[in-house]
Simulated scan of single mutants.
Amino acid sequence: MTAALIATDLDRTLIYSRAAMTGSQYSTENLRCIEYFDGAPLSYVTETAARQLEDLTTAHTVVPTTTRTPEQFRRIDLPGGPWRYAIASNGGALLADGKLDEQWRRHVDAAVREGGAGLDEVTAELRARISESWVTKFRIADELFCYLVVDVAAQPAGFLEEWQTWCQGRGWNASQQGRKIYTMPDSVCKSHAVAEVYRRLAEEGVIDADAPVFAAGDGALDAEMLMAADAAIRPRHGELELLEWQHSNLSVTEQSGIAAGEEILSWFARSARVEGAS
Protein backbone atom coordinates (compact mmCIF):
# COMPACT_ATOMS: atom_id res chain seq x y z
CA MET A 1 0.00 0.00 0.00
CA THR A 2 1.38 3.40 -0.98
CA ALA A 3 1.43 6.35 1.37
CA ALA A 4 0.09 9.12 -0.86
CA LEU A 5 -1.67 9.96 -4.10
CA ILE A 6 0.26 12.45 -6.20
CA ALA A 7 -1.68 14.20 -8.99
CA THR A 8 0.49 16.28 -11.25
CA ASP A 9 0.00 18.38 -14.34
CA LEU A 10 2.54 17.73 -17.09
CA ASP A 11 3.22 20.54 -19.58
CA ARG A 12 5.23 23.36 -17.99
CA THR A 13 4.96 21.61 -14.63
CA LEU A 14 6.96 18.40 -15.08
CA ILE A 15 7.70 18.38 -18.83
CA TYR A 16 8.93 21.23 -21.01
CA SER A 17 9.37 22.20 -24.61
CA ARG A 18 12.56 24.02 -25.58
CA ALA A 19 10.64 27.29 -25.59
CA ALA A 20 9.35 26.69 -22.06
CA MET A 21 12.79 26.11 -20.52
CA THR A 22 13.22 29.79 -19.72
CA GLY A 23 15.14 30.57 -16.57
CA SER A 24 17.29 27.44 -16.92
CA GLN A 25 20.41 26.46 -18.82
CA TYR A 26 20.62 22.79 -19.75
CA SER A 27 22.73 21.09 -22.37
CA THR A 28 21.38 18.30 -24.52
CA GLU A 29 23.39 15.83 -22.43
CA ASN A 30 21.37 16.78 -19.33
CA LEU A 31 17.99 16.44 -21.02
CA ARG A 32 15.85 13.43 -21.87
CA CYS A 33 13.45 13.81 -24.78
CA ILE A 34 10.19 12.12 -23.81
CA GLU A 35 7.98 13.19 -26.71
CA TYR A 36 8.36 13.38 -30.47
CA PHE A 37 5.80 14.87 -32.84
CA ASP A 38 6.00 14.32 -36.59
CA GLY A 39 9.46 12.91 -35.99
CA ALA A 40 10.77 16.02 -34.24
CA PRO A 41 11.67 16.25 -30.53
CA LEU A 42 9.06 18.20 -28.60
CA SER A 43 9.07 17.69 -24.81
CA TYR A 44 11.81 17.09 -22.28
CA VAL A 45 12.61 16.41 -18.66
CA THR A 46 16.03 16.70 -17.11
CA GLU A 47 17.84 13.44 -16.40
CA THR A 48 17.61 14.33 -12.71
CA ALA A 49 13.84 14.80 -12.96
CA ALA A 50 13.49 11.50 -14.82
CA ARG A 51 15.25 9.65 -11.98
CA GLN A 52 13.21 11.54 -9.38
CA LEU A 53 9.93 10.59 -11.05
CA GLU A 54 10.95 6.95 -11.39
CA ASP A 55 11.86 6.85 -7.69
CA LEU A 56 8.62 8.58 -6.71
CA THR A 57 6.48 6.02 -8.50
CA THR A 58 8.09 3.15 -6.61
CA ALA A 59 6.87 4.49 -3.27
CA HIS A 60 3.68 6.40 -4.08
CA THR A 61 0.78 6.41 -6.52
CA VAL A 62 1.49 9.04 -9.16
CA VAL A 63 -1.38 10.07 -11.44
CA PRO A 64 -0.42 12.13 -14.53
CA THR A 65 -3.17 14.74 -14.87
CA THR A 66 -3.28 16.75 -18.08
CA THR A 67 -5.45 18.86 -20.36
CA ARG A 68 -4.00 16.93 -23.29
CA THR A 69 -6.36 14.55 -25.03
CA PRO A 70 -5.71 10.81 -24.55
CA GLU A 71 -4.04 10.68 -27.97
CA GLN A 72 -1.73 13.56 -27.10
CA PHE A 73 -0.94 12.03 -23.71
CA ARG A 74 0.00 8.72 -25.30
CA ARG A 75 2.74 10.46 -27.30
CA ILE A 76 4.66 11.00 -24.07
CA ASP A 77 7.11 8.37 -22.80
CA LEU A 78 6.87 9.65 -19.23
CA PRO A 79 9.43 8.15 -16.82
CA GLY A 80 7.85 5.97 -14.15
CA GLY A 81 5.13 4.38 -16.29
CA PRO A 82 3.09 2.38 -17.03
CA TRP A 83 0.34 4.14 -15.11
CA ARG A 84 -2.48 2.43 -13.26
CA TYR A 85 -4.50 5.61 -13.76
CA ALA A 86 -3.93 8.74 -15.80
CA ILE A 87 -6.25 11.70 -16.30
CA ALA A 88 -6.54 13.42 -19.69
CA SER A 89 -8.77 16.02 -21.35
CA ASN A 90 -8.69 18.12 -18.16
CA GLY A 91 -10.54 15.38 -16.28
CA GLY A 92 -12.91 14.46 -19.07
CA ALA A 93 -11.03 11.25 -19.83
CA LEU A 94 -9.84 8.62 -17.38
CA LEU A 95 -7.28 6.05 -18.52
CA ALA A 96 -7.16 2.82 -16.53
CA ASP A 97 -4.09 0.76 -17.43
CA GLY A 98 -3.88 2.81 -20.61
CA LYS A 99 -7.46 2.19 -21.73
CA LEU A 100 -10.27 4.72 -21.81
CA ASP A 101 -12.79 4.23 -19.02
CA GLU A 102 -16.16 4.44 -20.78
CA GLN A 103 -18.14 4.58 -17.53
CA TRP A 104 -16.32 7.74 -16.46
CA ARG A 105 -16.81 9.32 -19.89
CA ARG A 106 -20.56 8.68 -19.75
CA HIS A 107 -20.62 10.34 -16.34
CA VAL A 108 -18.75 13.38 -17.68
CA ASP A 109 -20.93 13.68 -20.78
CA ALA A 110 -24.08 13.64 -18.62
CA ALA A 111 -22.65 16.30 -16.31
CA VAL A 112 -21.82 18.54 -19.29
CA ARG A 113 -25.33 18.19 -20.71
CA GLU A 114 -26.86 19.10 -17.37
CA GLY A 115 -24.41 21.91 -16.68
CA GLY A 116 -25.40 24.42 -19.33
CA ALA A 117 -24.69 25.19 -22.97
CA GLY A 118 -23.61 22.51 -25.39
CA LEU A 119 -20.32 22.45 -27.26
CA ASP A 120 -21.96 23.42 -30.57
CA GLU A 121 -23.53 26.55 -29.05
CA VAL A 122 -20.27 27.58 -27.41
CA THR A 123 -18.10 27.06 -30.48
CA ALA A 124 -20.56 28.91 -32.71
CA GLU A 125 -20.49 31.90 -30.37
CA LEU A 126 -16.71 31.77 -30.11
CA ARG A 127 -16.24 31.66 -33.89
CA ALA A 128 -18.39 34.79 -34.18
CA ARG A 129 -16.01 36.64 -31.83
CA ILE A 130 -12.64 35.83 -33.42
CA SER A 131 -10.81 36.47 -36.68
CA GLU A 132 -7.83 35.12 -38.56
CA SER A 133 -6.00 38.38 -37.88
CA TRP A 134 -5.07 37.09 -34.41
CA VAL A 135 -6.23 33.44 -34.18
CA THR A 136 -3.97 30.92 -35.90
CA LYS A 137 -5.78 27.71 -34.83
CA PHE A 138 -9.22 26.70 -33.57
CA ARG A 139 -9.31 23.21 -32.10
CA ILE A 140 -12.04 21.02 -30.59
CA ALA A 141 -10.52 18.57 -28.11
CA ASP A 142 -12.01 15.15 -27.37
CA GLU A 143 -15.49 16.46 -28.31
CA LEU A 144 -15.53 18.11 -24.87
CA PHE A 145 -13.94 21.55 -25.05
CA CYS A 146 -12.15 23.86 -27.44
CA TYR A 147 -9.09 26.04 -27.54
CA LEU A 148 -7.55 28.76 -29.66
CA VAL A 149 -3.92 29.32 -30.55
CA VAL A 150 -3.46 33.05 -30.83
CA ASP A 151 -1.02 35.79 -31.67
CA VAL A 152 -0.90 37.36 -28.24
CA ALA A 153 0.42 40.68 -29.52
CA ALA A 154 -2.55 41.00 -31.91
CA GLN A 155 -5.17 39.68 -29.47
CA PRO A 156 -7.83 42.34 -28.86
CA ALA A 157 -7.68 43.96 -25.44
CA GLY A 158 -10.45 42.70 -23.20
CA PHE A 159 -11.28 39.67 -25.32
CA LEU A 160 -10.62 37.10 -22.60
CA GLU A 161 -12.59 39.01 -19.98
CA GLU A 162 -15.58 39.48 -22.29
CA TRP A 163 -15.51 35.85 -23.39
CA GLN A 164 -15.27 34.65 -19.79
CA THR A 165 -18.31 36.76 -18.89
CA TRP A 166 -20.34 35.11 -21.67
CA CYS A 167 -19.17 31.64 -20.60
CA GLN A 168 -19.83 32.11 -16.89
CA GLY A 169 -23.57 32.39 -17.35
CA ARG A 170 -23.70 29.17 -19.36
CA GLY A 171 -21.74 26.67 -17.26
CA TRP A 172 -18.40 27.20 -19.00
CA ASN A 173 -15.14 29.03 -18.24
CA ALA A 174 -12.31 30.56 -20.23
CA SER A 175 -8.62 30.85 -19.39
CA GLN A 176 -5.41 31.68 -21.19
CA GLN A 177 -2.06 29.92 -20.96
CA GLY A 178 0.45 31.69 -23.15
CA ARG A 179 -0.73 31.43 -26.76
CA LYS A 180 -3.64 29.10 -25.93
CA ILE A 181 -7.11 30.20 -24.84
CA TYR A 182 -9.15 27.32 -23.41
CA THR A 183 -12.95 27.21 -23.25
CA MET A 184 -14.01 24.48 -20.83
CA PRO A 185 -17.27 23.20 -19.31
CA ASP A 186 -17.27 23.77 -15.54
CA SER A 187 -18.07 20.09 -15.04
CA VAL A 188 -14.89 19.01 -16.86
CA CYS A 189 -12.38 19.49 -14.08
CA LYS A 190 -9.21 17.71 -13.00
CA SER A 191 -10.22 17.70 -9.33
CA HIS A 192 -13.37 15.66 -10.08
CA ALA A 193 -11.32 13.00 -11.85
CA VAL A 194 -8.68 12.96 -9.10
CA ALA A 195 -11.44 12.34 -6.54
CA GLU A 196 -12.72 9.42 -8.64
CA VAL A 197 -9.24 7.91 -8.90
CA TYR A 198 -8.77 8.34 -5.16
CA ARG A 199 -12.07 6.54 -4.50
CA ARG A 200 -11.11 3.64 -6.78
CA LEU A 201 -7.60 3.28 -5.37
CA ALA A 202 -8.95 3.22 -1.82
CA GLU A 203 -11.47 0.55 -2.81
CA GLU A 204 -8.69 -1.45 -4.47
CA GLY A 205 -6.57 -1.21 -1.32
CA VAL A 206 -3.77 0.61 -3.12
CA ILE A 207 -4.00 3.61 -0.78
CA ASP A 208 -5.45 4.06 2.70
CA ALA A 209 -8.90 5.61 2.90
CA ASP A 210 -7.28 8.63 4.58
CA ALA A 211 -4.17 8.86 2.39
CA PRO A 212 -3.07 12.44 1.61
CA VAL A 213 -3.27 13.98 -1.84
CA PHE A 214 -0.45 16.15 -3.16
CA ALA A 215 -0.83 18.11 -6.39
CA ALA A 216 1.08 20.36 -8.78
CA GLY A 217 0.13 22.56 -11.73
CA ASP A 218 0.86 25.89 -13.38
CA GLY A 219 -2.41 27.00 -15.01
CA ALA A 220 -5.85 28.26 -14.05
CA LEU A 221 -7.28 24.90 -15.12
CA ASP A 222 -5.19 23.36 -12.32
CA ALA A 223 -6.38 25.72 -9.58
CA GLU A 224 -9.33 23.66 -8.33
CA MET A 225 -7.17 20.53 -8.21
CA LEU A 226 -4.55 22.39 -6.20
CA MET A 227 -7.13 23.74 -3.75
CA ALA A 228 -8.67 20.29 -3.26
CA ALA A 229 -5.34 18.67 -2.37
CA ASP A 230 -4.01 18.33 1.17
CA ALA A 231 -0.96 20.25 -0.02
CA ALA A 232 0.01 21.61 -3.43
CA ILE A 233 2.79 23.35 -5.29
CA ARG A 234 3.00 25.48 -8.41
CA PRO A 235 6.03 26.65 -10.38
CA ARG A 236 7.23 30.23 -10.39
CA HIS A 237 6.04 30.69 -13.96
CA GLY A 238 2.88 30.19 -15.96
CA GLU A 239 -0.66 31.47 -15.73
CA LEU A 240 -1.04 31.12 -11.95
CA GLU A 241 2.22 32.99 -11.43
CA LEU A 242 1.00 35.83 -13.66
CA LEU A 243 -2.22 35.91 -11.63
CA GLU A 244 -0.16 35.87 -8.39
CA TRP A 245 -2.47 33.04 -7.32
CA GLN A 246 -2.13 31.80 -3.75
CA HIS A 247 -3.94 29.41 -1.43
CA SER A 248 -3.52 28.36 2.18
CA ASN A 249 -2.19 24.90 1.20
CA LEU A 250 0.09 26.14 -1.60
CA SER A 251 3.86 26.26 -1.96
CA VAL A 252 5.64 28.02 -4.83
CA THR A 253 8.95 26.92 -6.29
CA GLU A 254 12.05 29.07 -6.04
CA GLN A 255 13.06 28.10 -9.59
CA SER A 256 11.29 28.77 -12.89
CA GLY A 257 11.52 26.93 -16.17
CA ILE A 258 12.56 23.30 -16.37
CA ALA A 259 14.45 23.53 -13.06
CA ALA A 260 11.07 23.98 -11.37
CA GLY A 261 10.18 20.44 -12.48
CA GLU A 262 13.04 19.03 -10.40
CA GLU A 263 12.02 21.21 -7.45
CA ILE A 264 8.40 20.04 -7.67
CA LEU A 265 9.45 16.38 -7.68
CA SER A 266 11.72 16.97 -4.67
CA TRP A 267 8.79 18.64 -2.88
CA PHE A 268 6.52 15.68 -3.64
CA ALA A 269 9.04 13.21 -2.23
CA ARG A 270 9.71 15.32 0.85
CA SER A 271 6.01 16.00 1.53
CA ALA A 272 5.05 12.34 1.18
CA ARG A 273 7.98 11.27 3.37
CA VAL A 274 6.98 13.72 6.12
CA GLU A 275 3.36 12.61 5.93
CA GLY A 276 4.38 8.96 6.10
CA ALA A 277 6.51 9.59 9.18
CA SER A 278 3.75 11.45 11.05
Rank of each mutant, 00 (worst) to 15 (best):
T8K: 04
T8E: 06
L10S: 02
D11K: 10
D11L: 11
R12I: 00
R12D: 14
T13V: 04
L14A: 04
L14N: 01
S17K: 06
R18V: 07
A19D: 15
A20C: 07
M21H: 08
M21G: 07
M21R: 09
T22R: 14
G23S: 06
G23C: 04
S24C: 15
Q25L: 10
Q25W: 05
Y26I: 03
T28P: 00
N30R: 13
N30V: 00
R32V: 13
R32C: 11
R32Q: 14
C33A: 12
I34A: 10
F37A: 04
A40C: 01
P41H: 05
P41F: 12
V45H: 09
T46F: 10
T46K: 12
E47Q: 15
E47M: 11
T48P: 00
A49S: 15
A49K: 11
A50F: 09
R51C: 04
R51L: 10
Q52C: 01
E54G: 09
D55S: 12
T61P: 02
T61K: 08
V63M: 06
T66F: 07
T67H: 09
T67W: 05
R68L: 04
R68W: 02
T69M: 06
F73P: 10
R74A: 09
R74I: 00
R75P: 00
R75N: 01
R75H: 03
P79D: 05
G80S: 10
G80Y: 11
R84M: 09
R84P: 08
Y85N: 02
I87R: 08
I87N: 03
I87D: 07
S89T: 15
S89E: 12
S89H: 13
N90C: 11
N90F: 08
A93P: 00
A93H: 13
L94R: 07
A96Y: 01
D97N: 13
G98D: 03
G98P: 02
G98E: 04
K99H: 06
D101A: 06
E102W: 02
W104P: 04
W104Y: 09
R106H: 14
R106Y: 06
H107T: 13
H107F: 08
V108M: 08
A111S: 15
V112C: 13
R113I: 03
E114L: 15
E114R: 15
E114M: 15
G118H: 03
D120S: 11
